[in-house]
């Protein structure tokens, strides 16, 4: 699988990172090299091998349904780049097929 610049452009969009064509070119080369290296995993026979997501086997870690005090609106908004009343304000939202 050879990585193309168009694929990298799509990945940059999915990652919400703006990139110039020049940057995309460089990124295509670097990611390609890393993915080529990762292809060495194809040497292994993984037939019947289960994937490991959690290395320490644990299950059913839960808390009781008890309400705790919230941190307060001032702490919530203390780092807000654009505070408007008790809201975080952001530029106009345009729906691009994601969201819900």
């Amino acid at each position: 699988m050879k990585l193309t610049r168009e694929e990298v452009r799509e990945v940059a969009y999915l990652s919400r990172i703006e990139m110039t064509d020049e940057e995309l070119d460089r990124m295509t080369g670097q990611l390609g090299a890393i993915l080529d290296y990762a292809d060495m995993l194809n040497e292994l026979d993984l037939e019947g091998v289960e994937p490991t997501s959690h290395v320490i086997p644990m299950k059913n870690v839960m808390r009781e349904d008890v309400v705790k005090e919230s941190c307060g609106v001032e702490k919530a908004l203390m780092n807000a780049p654009d505070r408007f009343g008790d809201f975080f304000r952001v530029p106009k939202v345009i729906d691009e097929g994601e969201g819900h």
Binding site: L14, R16, I17, M19, L31, V90, P91, I94
Partner: peptide, 27 residues
């Protein structure tokens, strides 16, 4: 607009290695 804000912020805020790994992981 919000999408441009996301993209410009993340372009300016992350360094080269972090961008590389985010892209690699997204892929």
């Amino acid at each position: 607009d919000i999408v441009s804000m996301f993209r410009k912020t993340r372009r300016a805020g992350f360094g080269a290695e972090v961008k590389r790994r985010i892209m690699l992981g997204t892929y």
